[in-house]
Computed example of a mutant assay.
Amino acid sequence: MSQLLLVEDDAVLAEALSGALRGLGHSVTVAGSGERALTALFEEGAAADLVLLDVMLPGIDGFEVCRRIRARGSVPVILLTARGDPIDVVAGLEGGADDYVVKPAEPRVLDARVKTVLRRATLAQPADSAQRVFTLGELSVDRAAMVVTNNGSEVHLTPTELRLLLEFVDHFGQVLSRQALLRRVWDYGYTGDSRLVDAAVARLRAKIEPDPANPVLLRTARGIGYRLAKP
């Protein structure tokens, strides 16, 4: 059973959505504001495998809550946005969200998204032990220990960022299209949102590139996707 923290200020909607998710097998705690969610997570130690976060909140909005969650941990975040507004979506993804769902969210769709995001935390171990540690310049990926280091310091990645990096490691030197990455990392088909990929790549570059504005490891194949290559 997954532990979900639902951050929603509309009490009627929160009750309906939490009840539906409980009926689908999840344990749900509700926070009515961003401040309450942050207190529950970081001061009260509330258990949460994933945060369902409304964008439009009184006080601290969902974007800021997401940034604060990401600054202090790797718990997955799915944004609940009232509109599919590109600005809202991109701002949320750049702030560290793993995915987004447009409200009103159909419970079974949301359940599927939750399960997909949580699956990213369970990564298959390679059969060949020789493949377990990958080194590229100052970047090291120990797949057995699920530890990434850069310049000797551990790099803290979210499950989505880690799975994305492992896809590039497993296909080193190959160009991976955005749609291929959506299938392999997000478990999405043709209709997946390529902005998920672009935002996750930008966050990954910020953590592994010497100069994220001029990437030398994770390179863009214009009009296609990305590839991991020697600097």
Results as ranks from 00 to 15, higher is better:
2 S>P: 12
4 L>H: 07
4 L>D: 04
6 L>Q: 06
12 V>H: 15
15 E>Q: 15
15 E>C: 07
17 L>D: 06
17 L>I: 10
20 A>P: 04
20 A>W: 02
22 R>L: 08
23 G>D: 10
25 G>D: 08
27 S>R: 15
29 T>D: 14
32 G>F: 13
32 G>N: 14
36 R>C: 11
37 A>T: 03
38 L>E: 01
39 T>L: 12
39 T>Y: 05
40 A>Y: 07
44 E>P: 08
45 G>C: 11
47 A>K: 13
48 A>F: 08
50 L>D: 07
52 L>V: 04
52 L>R: 07
53 L>P: 06
54 D>A: 12
54 D>L: 10
54 D>K: 08
55 V>C: 08
56 M>S: 15
57 L>R: 01
57 L>A: 02
59 G>M: 03
59 G>P: 05
59 G>H: 05
61 D>W: 01
62 G>L: 02
63 F>W: 10
64 E>Q: 11
74 S>P: 07
75 V>P: 02
79 L>S: 09
82 A>G: 15
84 G>K: 02
85 D>I: 00
85 D>F: 00
88 D>P: 11
89 V>W: 00
91 A>I: 10
93 L>R: 09
95 G>K: 01
98 D>K: 11
99 D>P: 09
99 D>Y: 11
102 V>N: 06
106 E>Q: 13
108 R>A: 11
112 A>G: 07
112 A>E: 06
114 V>T: 09
115 K>L: 12
116 T>V: 13
116 T>N: 14
117 V>P: 08
117 V>H: 03
118 L>N: 10
119 R>Q: 13
119 R>K: 14
122 T>M: 15
124 A>P: 13
124 A>W: 00
129 S>L: 13
134 F>P: 04
135 T>G: 12
136 L>R: 05
137 G>Q: 10
141 V>D: 02
144 A>G: 08
145 A>R: 14
147 V>L: 13
148 V>A: 06
149 T>G: 08
149 T>N: 08
154 E>G: 10
154 E>D: 11
154 E>W: 03
156 H>E: 14
157 L>Y: 06
161 E>I: 04
161 E>V: 03
162 L>S: 12
167 E>M: 14
169 V>M: 00
170 D>H: 11
171 H>L: 03
173 G>E: 07
173 G>K: 05
175 V>R: 01
175 V>L: 04
180 A>H: 13
183 R>C: 08
183 R>V: 04
184 R>P: 01
184 R>E: 12
186 W>F: 14
187 D>E: 13
187 D>Y: 12
189 G>H: 01
189 G>I: 00
189 G>E: 01
197 V>L: 09
199 A>Y: 00
201 V>R: 00
202 A>M: 08
202 A>L: 11
209 E>S: 02
209 E>W: 08
210 P>H: 03
212 P>D: 06
213 A>R: 14
214 N>R: 15
215 P>A: 09
216 V>A: 13
218 L>F: 03
218 L>P: 01
220 T>N: 15
224 I>C: 04
224 I>W: 10
224 I>H: 13
225 G>H: 04
226 Y>K: 01
226 Y>E: 02
227 R>N: 07
227 R>L: 13
229 A>P: 04
